[in-house]
Each structure stands twice: as structure tokens, then as C-alpha cells.
């Protein structure tokens, strides 16, 4: 049977570990969002050298396993003289990885804006940055939102991989608890529920943002 007392006893420790998972995820989310937008703009640049550089980046990052990327940054980078602590390595890997996916999400959202909208901005005398800031980005938010949140959820779940390089996140804490208590079912149950709660928060954020962003669409 399920040992409920055990679950009550260990829940504070797992909750504490949620903070680590959430912190790593949110930090990586912020960094990869900014980087992803930058890469998307490079990809859309008329300059061949910029767009192909971005294309190659996305190709490599999306085409290789996240775990391999984590090992490369944590174990292989020190050979080049750059030693990162597990936290930094984890956040850096997750950010680089997600930025490739985000860039494709942003690129398709930007390309979905009718050319007339940007032509109107150009015709009124806006420069490229003004057009981007005032027209292109606000108009891309709505189409980008669902796939963006989807990728954010993936990012949060993928953050469990940093447990392998000894970051005391939710997954790593769970492993250390069941390896000493052997209560695998209880620990996995609690851990699963906690991940689900965290991803649900993102889901809720999506729903409320979608509503806020659709105020101007035809009713």
C-alpha cells in the first residue's frame, strides 16, 4: 500500500527542490526567449551570412540530444579551460537548446504577419527597429503564444536532466530520497504531481494571455 505518512514527511524537501527546478527553468526561459528572438531575426535577415549562421545553429542544436549538449558543456568545456559550475552549465545548456526552438516559433509568427502591416509602418516613415518594436513584435505575440508555451513546458520538463550533473533539482532530490528509502512509488507519484502542477501554471498563463491578446480581434 501507499505510505501516506512517508509522503507527508518528505513533501517539504521535494517542495524545496521545486524552487530549484522552477528557478532554473524560469531563468533559462528568459534567456532563451531573448536569444531566440535574436536568432529568429538573424534567420530572417536578407544578409546571407547572417541567415545561414542562424540556420546552422538551429540545425545543430535541434539535431543533437539535449543530454549530449549538457555533457559537452559540463564535461568537455573544461578541456578548453572554461570550467562551469553545475548550475551555470545547466542553465546555459537549457537556454541554448530552447533558443533554437524558440527562434523557429518566433520566425513563423513574424512571417505570419500580413506584409501590408509592415508596409504601412514603412510608409509612415518608421525605421526597421521601430517597425519591429511597435508593429511586428506586438502582432507576433498572439500566433507565437501557443507554441511558445508548449516549448516552455518542454523546457521545464527537460530541466530534470540537470539532475545528472548534480544540481539538486526536483528530479535529483527525488532520486536521492528513493535511493535511501526505497519508496519509489511514493516518491515518483509526488514528483510527478509536482511537475504537473508547475507545467499547469504555464498552461494557465497561456489561457489568460490568449484572452488578453485577443481583445482586438473581430468578435
Amino acid at each position: 500500500m501507499i505510505d501516506w505518512n512517508f509522503m507527508v514527511t518528505y513533501s517539504p524537501r521535494l517542495l524545496k527542490a521545486c524552487e530549484v527546478t522552477f528557478g532554473i527553468s524560469v531563468t533559462s526561459l528568459a534567456l532563451s526567449t531573448v536569444a531566440g528572438l535574436g536568432i529568429a531575426l538573424l534567420r530572417l535577415s536578407p544578409r546571407r551570412i547572417l541567415s545561414s549562421t542562424a540556420w546552422i545553429y538551429v540545425w545543430i542544436v535541434r539535431g543533437t540530444p539535449l543530454l549530449l549538449q549538457l555533457f559537452a558543456i559540463y564535461y568537455a568545456m573544461p578541456m578548453t579551460g572554461l570550467r562551469l559550475d553545475p548550475w551555470t552549465a545547466g542553465i546555459l545548456t537549457l537556454s541554448l537548446n530552447s533558443s533554437a526552438y524558440f527562434s523557429e516559433i518566433f520566425r513563423s509568427a513574424i512571417q505570419s504577419i500580413p506584409t501590408g502591416q509592415t508596409e504601412a509602418a514603412i510608409a509612415i516613415g518608421m525605421g526597421p527597429l521601430q517597425t519591429l518594436r511597435r508593429i511586428v513584435i506586438p502582432l507576433s505575440l498572439r500566433p507565437a503564444l501557443p507554441p511558445y508555451v508548449g516549448q516552455a513546458i518542454t523546457l521545464l520538463k527537460n530541466s530534470s536532466l540537470v539532475s545528472i550533473i548534480a544540481v539538486p533539482d526536483l528530479m535529483q532530490t527525488a532520486q536521492s530520497i528513493y535511493s535511501t528509502t526505497f519508496k519509489v512509488v511514493e516518491v515518483m507519484l509526488m514528483t510527478g504531481v509536482l511537475y504537473l502542477i508547475m507545467t499547469s501554471l504555464l498552461q494557465i498563463a497561456q489561457t489568460s494571455l490568449e484572452r488578453r491578446l485577443s481583445y482586438y480581434t473581430v468578435k
Binding site: G116, Q117, A120, I122, G125, M126, G127, L139, Y216, T217
Partner: peptide, 25 residues
């Protein structure tokens, strides 16, 4: 130069067939 082009554009108003109003404003 792009800057001069943008300045000249500001002196020309344009109205499009499909209006092209910005839907978020």
C-alpha cells in the same frame, strides 16, 4: 542612406487598397 530614405518617406502619405490598419491599436 537609409536614414535619408526614411526621412523622405515621412513626407509621403499612403493609403492602401486593403487599409492595412494595425489591428492591435
Amino acid at each position: 542612406r537609409n536614414r535619408d530614405l526614411i526621412r523622405l518617406r515621412q513626407t509621403v502619405g499612403m493609403v492602401f487598397q486593403s487599409f492595412n490598419l494595425w489591428p492591435h491599436l
